[in-house]
Design a protein around this nucleic acid. Structure first.
Lengths: 162, 162
DNA sequence: GCCAATAGGTTATAGAGTAACATATCTGCC
DNA sequence: GGCAGATATGTTACTCTATAACCTATTGGC
């Protein structure tokens, strides 16, 4: 059984971007929070592809897109907002950020990360989530957040090496 | 079912330290690599408790223990060695390092991390590991390393709040 | 239109990690 | 023992990541 993830396959990525921004707008309206120009722009840049982007990379991209140059706190505040709203995830192992394809629902932040092409594939496996919660429970541990970061080679990159 | 992890219970921690250092010495001898004074000292400091320590914290501890002041590359090289030998793990979400209680065997780096007391509990759940590998396989992904970092409250800290 | 709250701008600095090169120490070999 | 090559550590400087503190601008409700 081999289900190639969207992130790894040829696809209409404009569609991904459009959907993500649309979902973000709706979510922010329904929650009564403000998706400002800056926040939207940062989210759009993050969605440029399925690869996590660092804060400083985003700063450079902002500087090119706009005339204005943005200082670190500005971009970090936008990132903090997007994280709080569950619109993006932080990939700890890369110090980088990636868009969440299903904001508004539960986020366990489970990723497969390719060390060659840099793509990060978000998993949605309730069973895995349940098992982690179960294991934690057995240790008397109260789970607040989870971060599973599996590093290796995606199907494309592993295939190219053989 | 509730198995309080060692890290969270009262225990003879000198025993933990002793065992860890003994295991490290044996492992290094059997592999023909050099567990130098510095590396041993760093490992010992990391094992002071069951809480991850940052590289700069370790530097300060080294400076206090010895007269000599150690520069970042020195401590990072020791940490790199210990990581390579599987004697410690890196906790990405904390930018910190913690001793591995079972070096020499497979390391999946699965942790429960308490945000209050800072303790990090290493899990040893082959079933969980298998499931992660299975999920990755279904996406055609070749796993090289895993990092599961579950944050929340340990049994002690959760109990103290109720 | 005013006020309080929220968002963004600015400067400076803290924290984490590494590159590049110099020196020391440890082997194995003669 | 002494030498050579490999391994380990010291040193300086720097890059990358993130935040503190303070100020200004914008927004939305009254």
């Amino acid at each position: 059984m081999d289900h190639t993830p969207i992130a790894c396959s040829h696809h209409d990525h404009d569609h991904c971007i459009h959907d993500a921004l649309e979902a973000a707008r709706n979510l922010c309206v329904s929650r009564g929070v403000r998706l400002t120009d800056l926040r939207l722009q940062v989210l759009e840049l993050i969605w440029q592809n399925h690869k996590p982007l660092g804060a400083y990379t985003l700063m450079e991209m902002l500087a090119k897109a706009n005339t204005r140059r943005v200082a670190p706190p500005t971009v970090y505040r936008a990132l903090d907002f997007l994280l709080e709203q569950g619109l993006i995830h932080r990939i700890n192992v890369l110090n980088a950020f990636i868009g969440c394809p299903s904001p508004g629902t539960k986020h366990q932040s489970h990723f497969l990360i390719c060390r060659t092409c840099g793509v990060a594939i978000e998993l949605d496996e309730p069973t895995l989530n349940q098992q982690i919660l179960q294991v934690a429970k057995e240790s008397g541990f109260t789970v607040e957040t989870q971060a599973l970061e599996v590093s290796g080679l995606c199907a494309n990159c592993a295939g190219a090496n053989t």
